[in-house]
């Protein structure tokens, strides 16, 4: 007589397993990148900021929200917190951006053996995370300096330097330690790592085109625009309206946190939506 058992929390333990796996690996990846030397020229860093392919590959292989979330948390826990470099609230935005970037990247790939899809996903994960991060950095400078635009040369210089930094990062982290290793690792690990974990490999939808979860990306971008808009309001807008400048002098700029909070909330809602619908229906295929 076969005795069947109600499946007891099987999924939650798979989630926990993926979470811990990605946490540990992206943590150690970050820690090692941290130990390697860097050459810093002001805001421009030449060096490995992370072996970002590790979380990208894992997120492509598992297509799991928990895996995506674990990556930035692993970085926080292993590299930052334990080395005493924890940046406090500033780390928050990184968690949101990286989680979203990785989660969407995982969703984009439909066929793990298709190199074009993997390449697209890897690039997306990096660009999404780093480009928006760059914009947030610029916004911070803007908000942190009184009459930022009025100071001649400064906005241009901040923009120029941040963009150069982004391009360097893109070449080093995005391509050399992101795209190329991802293309090498993803097909090699596929079908090999899953049995070790006791789970089924992700289904390959042969011939399926790259999936662009339009709603997810759209939602993510709306979140960022909302963030940018609100910071514009808090930075520039109030100066035009001449609204209680006295008050602003002392309490004005805390608005920087409003956009970040809003972005966080939007991001969470968007991801939740994406999770429940799994990006079907309205996604377009390219």
């Amino acid at each position: 007589m076969e005795r069947v058992l109600r499946p007891e929390r099987k999924n939650s333990s798979k989630d926990l397993m993926l979470f811990i796996l990605v946490l540990a690996l992206s943590g150690i990846e970050n820690l090692i990148a941290e130990v390697l030397p860097e050459f810093q020229l002001g805001p421009i860093e030449v060096g490995i900021s992370s072996f970002i392919f590790v979380p990208i590959v894992l997120c492509i292989l598992f297509d799991s929200f928990w895996a995506a979330l674990a990556a930035p948390i692993g970085e926080l826990v292993f590299a930052d917190l334990i080395l005493g470099e924890f940046g406090g609230l500033g780390e928050f935005e990184e968690v949101i951006l990286l989680t979203m970037g990785l989660y969407i990247a995982g969703k984009m790939v439909k066929d793990v053996t298709n190199r074009k899809q993997i390449a697209a996903a890897a690039l997306f994960a990096f660009i999404f995370q780093d480009l928006i991060g760059t914009f947030i950095d610029m916004t911070k400078v803007w908000v942190g300096i009184e009459d930022f635009e009025a100071i001649s040369g400064l906005p241009e210089s901040v923009f120029a330097l941040e963009m150069i930094d982004f391009l360097v990062e893109f070449a080093v982290t995005g391509i050399i330690f992101g795209l190329i290793p991802t293309l090498y690792f993803a097909p090699r690990l596929y079908g090999k790592i899953e049995p070790l974990l006791g789970i089924k490999p992700r289904l390959i939808e042969k011939g399926a085109a790259l999936n662009v979860p339009i709603r997810l990306i759209g939602g993510a971008i709306i979140a960022v625009i909302a963030a940018a808009a609100v910071s514009m309001l808090s930075g520039a807008g109030f100066n035009i309206i001449e609204w209680e400048p006295e008050f602003l002098d002392q309490f004005g700029q805390w608005y920087i946190w409003v956009p970040i909070t809003i972005a966080a909330i939007v991001a969470i809602v968007v991801i939740w939506l994406g999770k429940s619908n799994n990006g079907e229906g309205q996604d377009i295929n390219v």
Binding site: G42, P43, E146, I151, G153, E156, S157
Partner: peptide, 27 residues
């Protein structure tokens, strides 16, 4: 310090003045 110094130097070449430096100092 390095980051701010860079902004200031580049700002100077882009036609800025000491105001940029002062502003950067508070940031």
């Amino acid at each position: 310090i390095g980051q701010m110094a860079c902004y200031a130097i580049v700002a100077y070449f882009l036609g800025g003045n000491m105001a940029a430096l002062a502003a950067l100092l508070t940031l």
